[in-house]
């Protein structure tokens, strides 16, 4: 069918002679791109090598071999970063395109082996002594520096996760689910602080025009972390006190919703809707249980069915307004 589609469109006059000729020419000599296969292979290679080396160092810590491994990692790190420095395009506060896809992965390998190196130096020689804060602070700063210097979003997200680690929490979804402990006031406030910090960073990135394409990463983590912190605060405290958290949530939603609507980003609108739905449903359930215990489940079911319908209609309308802009960003 593919072959006749364009003949058909051409004969109907919907496709100009020029476009038709270009398409025919391309179809007669199709290029088979192995771009994504190569990218996946590079990514897997970096993953395997950095993991393997990381374990290798710790396993051989008491033998003579670990010096060799350490030297290898140092050479690898220096080699990768040096190569990237030589091949990078000049620095700019705007977006700098990476010279080629190889560049991104070599940089990633260099940065990861740097982290292994720092970690090893601390464990073996105690370079940072008992100042554990410094031992996580330094890699974070270096990561942020590399992210901006080489213009690499992947390194930036690594830096953001390291910022969280320095503050004593995690941000990746998997770790949030596995390790995070929200029954602890200190955690909730740390998350809240981290989230606000990231939101401000995202805002400042746009406002001052420094690497504007980094704003998404800040905003993405900021929105999730802040919402989760506010929600856990809301569920942590008793009925009366929780209203303070609920009002904070409402204020935050207002800002993020307005911003997302202006930027026509359906992703953040959807996040606002879903997180608020969780909060509001929590409020309904808590209130219903307080008032009517026996018929509670009927009321709650009715609430979920009607609110579900309402939200679907709301999302449909929202999506129609932003029709062509449904993407991350």
């Amino acid at each position: 069918m593919n072959n006749t589609v364009f003949d058909h469109l051409h004969s109907e006059g919907l496709l100009s002679d020029e476009s038709f000729k270009k398409i025919k020419q391309r179809q007669s000599s199709p290029l088979f791109s192995v771009h994504w296969e190569l990218k996946t292979a590079l990514y897997t290679g970096v993953l395997l090598l950095s993991t393997g080396l990381g374990i290798l160092v710790y396993k051989n810590i008491d033998s003579i071999g670990h010096q060799v491994v350490l030297a290898f990692i140092a050479v690898l790190c220096a080699g990768c970063l040096g190569w990237c420095n030589k091949n990078k395009k000049p620095f700019s506060f705007a977006k700098v395109e990476s010279p080629n896809s190889l560049f991104d992965y070599v940089l990633l390998l260099g940065v990861l082996s740097f982290l292994s190196l720092i970690g090893y130096l601390q464990v073996q020689y105690g370079v940072f002594g008992d100042k554990y804060g410094l031992a996580t602070f330094l890699p974070m700063v270096v990561l942020f520096f590399f992210a901006y210097y080489f213009d690499h979003i992947g390194v930036l997200t690594l830096a953001i996760t390291n910022l969280a680690i320095w503050m004593g929490v995690t941000v990746t979804p998997k770790d949030l689910l596995e390790h995070a402990n929200f029954n602890n006031e200190k955690f909730i406030y740390t998350y809240l602080l981290l989230g606000c910090l990231l939101l401000v960073a995202g805002w400042a990135t746009n406002y001052y025009g420094i690497k504007k394409h980094f704003a998404f990463s800040y905003h993405h983590y900021g929105v999730h972390v802040t919402f989760i912190a506010l929600l856990s605060g809301y569920f942590f405290y008793d009925y009366g006190l929780s209203f303070i958290w609920l009002s904070c949530l409402a204020v935050l939603t207002w800002f993020i919703f307005k911003d997302a609507y202006r930027k026509r980003s359906f992703y953040f609108l959807l996040l606002c809707v879903l997180y608020n739905y969780i909060a509001f449903s929590g409020l309904i359930i808590r209130s219903v249980i307080k008032v009517a215990e026996s018929e509670g489940f009927y009321l709650i079911s009715l609430y979920f069915v009607s609110s579900g319908f309402g939200l679907i209609i709301f999302l449909t309308n929202l999506n129609r307004k932003l029709k062509s802009n449904d993407h991350l960003q």
Binding site: T51, F114, L115, G119, Y132, G133, T136, P139
Partner: peptide
């Protein structure tokens, strides 16, 4: 802000 181990290297 002291907690946490080393940064997100592949070093598991």
């Amino acid at each position: 802000f002291g907690g946490g181990r080393f940064g997100g290297g592949g070093a598991s």
